[in-house]
Structure formats: C-alpha cells, structure tokens
Amino acid sequence: MFTGIIETLGTVTGITKNGSNVQFDIASAITSELKVDQSVAHNGVCLTVVAVEGDCYSVTAIDETLKKTNLKSWATGKKVNLERCMPANGRFDGHIVQGHVDQVGKVERIVEQDGSWLFDFSYDPNTGNVTVEKGSITINGTSLTCFNSKNGTFTVAIIPYTYEHTNFHELAVGDEVNLEFDIIGKYIQRIIRGYAD
C-alpha cells in the first residue's frame, strides 16, 4: 500500500522489450536502499524491483500494464514519480493508494496563479470511475484533492513544492497521466452498481 506522497524523482535510463513485456531501468537517489522483490510505485504504478546495479534498478511492466497506463509512452530521460510502500508503523500523510491505475487521463489546461498552478484533467467517464468534490485522487502517483468535479473532468491545485518535487513541472496540455480513483469511492460505486453481466 502507498500514500501518494512522492519520495523522489527517478529517471528512465534504459528500455528493453522482452516479448510483450518491457523492462525499464531507472536511476534514482533511493536505488541504494532498494532490494530485489521490493514494490515501488512509478507514476502510481506498483512495479517489482527485479535487479539493482549501481545507481540504477530495473522493473518489468507486462502488456496489460502498458495498455492501461502512460508507461507505454515512456522514453529514456523521462522523469518518474517514485514512492516505496508505506511501512506498517509509518505516518499516513496522503490517502489509501494501491498502486493499481484505473485509467489514463489527459491534461486539458494548466493555469499559473501567482506561484501555484491549476491543472484541469479529463478522463473517459464510461469506465464508471467518478471523482467527489474535495475528495482524493491520485495523479501519476501523487495524492491530491480534486474540485470542479464533473462527469469526466476535474481540477487540482498544485503548490510550488509539489510542482518542483514531482513531475508536474514537466506536464503539458495533451499529456496522458495515470489516474487511481479513491478506493472508498470505488467500493461504494461497486455496491451501488453491482457487477455487469
């Protein structure tokens, strides 16, 4: 389990295709603290460390993950938000984040407001995912509060610290982001709607 509080940025240094899977090599400030089999969220996607060498480590994404996330568009030099799993005795600073991306969204508008930024996002509402006004949303692994919550759109406000210490400073209009909707909202939605036949 994660909290959506980004620890550091990593940089994609290598991409290797193995059948339908892709191995990503990542350089980061926390590499020396990682070990094989450890789970790390990459832009909100929980991936398992499969190798550690020097200041780089490797993770593998399967075809299903590539299809449902923005990992399919990663290139070398890409900055990635990183978060290790929350320790059992850790402080819960964000919200419950599973590292299971529900769908991708798109940056529709970025507005600077005297030192902070407003980001408008859209997503396909036909998947059944919803946001709640002043509720939690995870964008590229970052725990945020959404507002202007409508069917298929919402807004978040980004403070300077978050802007600089996550990959929000690299986002541009039209970019895809990974969205994980609030787990409590998803359970309520499932109870109300039931299962499709």
Rank of each mutant, 00 (worst) to 15 (best):
V59E: 12
L34Q: 00
K106C: 12
A196F: 02
T162Y: 11
D114C: 07
V107F: 02
K79C: 10
I137P: 06
K186W: 03
G10V: 01
E112V: 07
A61D: 02
E64V: 03
A51C: 09
W74Q: 06
I6C: 02
E53Q: 11
I192G: 05
Y187H: 13
Y195P: 09
T3F: 00
V111R: 13
N43G: 04
H42F: 08
T76N: 15
S149D: 13
I184K: 09
D37K: 15
G141H: 06
V45W: 01
S20Y: 08
F121C: 07
S143E: 11
S20A: 08
G44Q: 02
N89Y: 08
Y57C: 11
V97C: 00
G14F: 07
V59S: 10
L82S: 05
I15P: 04
V111C: 11
T153I: 06
N140D: 11
A27G: 07
T16R: 14
I62D: 15
Q23R: 12
D25S: 15
I188N: 07
V132T: 13
D93C: 08
D124L: 08
G174K: 01
G54L: 02
E53I: 14
K72D: 00
T142N: 02
S39M: 04
I191H: 15
G77T: 06
K17G: 12
I26D: 05
I158G: 05
A51P: 03
V111E: 14
V80C: 04
T127Q: 10
V173S: 09
T76Q: 11
I6D: 04
G19Y: 12
